[in-house]
């Protein structure tokens, strides 16, 4: 019984609050001061609750149900639980329904991004450069072991190894180490200046019919005169590659190692 009376009181209060809010809004609009509907209803309802704490002793006729304003198919957004906890028994008025298109928008965004990812990964030249990798990358490089660089106006190619750059002394050495031209990053002149330059990387060549060992350097063969010179240069036997004698003979002669030992013997 008591619950029924409370329900009626609540309904009555709601109706009164609506009515007062409508009138106040009308008058404030005329005065050029638009008010927030929700805040006004809250304020009025609170005031009415304070002023009318006691329920009527006799049941009053139930008011006619007020038709709800037509809403879109969507449900109103519910208030946050914190707000409800702070003001128990007083629910905020429903906000205007938000348009429900997030799922569709997300789907379109995802499809658009997919198309973009494909687009920026399509090669735009014969070197396989894509839009995503088209920016010059000198400043973007990470200096790590295996990085191959060449300064713009210098034909020499260097590889980074154990904290220093090492000159690759010949095309054969370059290829034997498994590098390709796509690995070479052209950098501005002077890029290597702040770095330590380590010993050069050479290829040592020998043919089966000759005991002599040659070092290939700038596409010339340099005869290593003896074992002592071989070891002094820091070479090890694993560096020696066997090639046909005819190939070795065709290579032009360079200065001996160490220099000053006359014309080198031919293999």
């Amino acid at each position: 019984m008591r619950d029924e009376r409370d329900d009626r009181l609540d309904q009555l209060l709601d109706l009164l609050a609506e009515e007062v809010a409508e009138r106040l809004r009308g008058s404030s609009s005329l005065a050029g001061q638009p008010l927030e509907r929700g805040a006004l209803i809250d304020e009025t309802a609170e005031r009415l609750e304070e002023e009318m704490p006691s329920a009527p002793s006799e049941p009053e006729p139930r008011p006619e149900p007020v038709p709800e304003p037509p809403l879109a198919a969507e449900e109103p957004v519910e208030p946050e639980p914190e707000e409800l906890e702070e003001r128990p028994g007083l629910e905020s008025p429903p906000s205007p329904p938000a348009p429900r298109h997030t799922a569709r928008l997300l789907g379109r965004l995802a499809l658009g991004l997919l198309a973009l990812v494909v687009l920026i990964n399509i090669p735009i030249n014969r070197h396989g450069t894509t839009l995503a990798t088209a920016m010059p990358d000198t400043r973007a490089m990470v200096i790590r072991d295996g990085l191959v660089v060449k300064e713009e106006d210098d034909p020499e190619i260097y590889v980074y190894q154990d904290g220093r750059f090492r000159w690759i002394s010949s095309l054969t050495a370059f290829e034997m180490r498994g590098h390709t031209w796509e690995d070479v990053h052209v950098v501005e002149d002077g890029f290597l200046d702040p770095f330590e330059i380590g010993p050069a990387i050479h290829v040592l060549l020998k043919c089966p019919d000759s005991p002599h060992i040659y070092r290939l350097e700038a596409e010339e063969k340099r005869w290593i005169v003896d074992i002592e010179a071989f070891e002094d240069e820091g070479h090890v036997w694993e560096d020696v590659q066997s090639v046909p004698c005819a190939y070795l003979r065709d290579l032009p002669d360079g200065e001996t190692i160490p220099p000053g030992h006359g014309p080198p013997p031919q293999p």
Partner: peptide, 20 residues
């Protein structure tokens, strides 16, 4: 979802900057 919403921004920087 938030990462996806950031993706256009990240793509923009991907195409316009080069610093790794």
């Amino acid at each position: 979802v938030l990462l996806l919403s950031f993706a256009p921004v990240v793509t923009f920087f991907l195409l316009t900057t080069s610093q790794y």
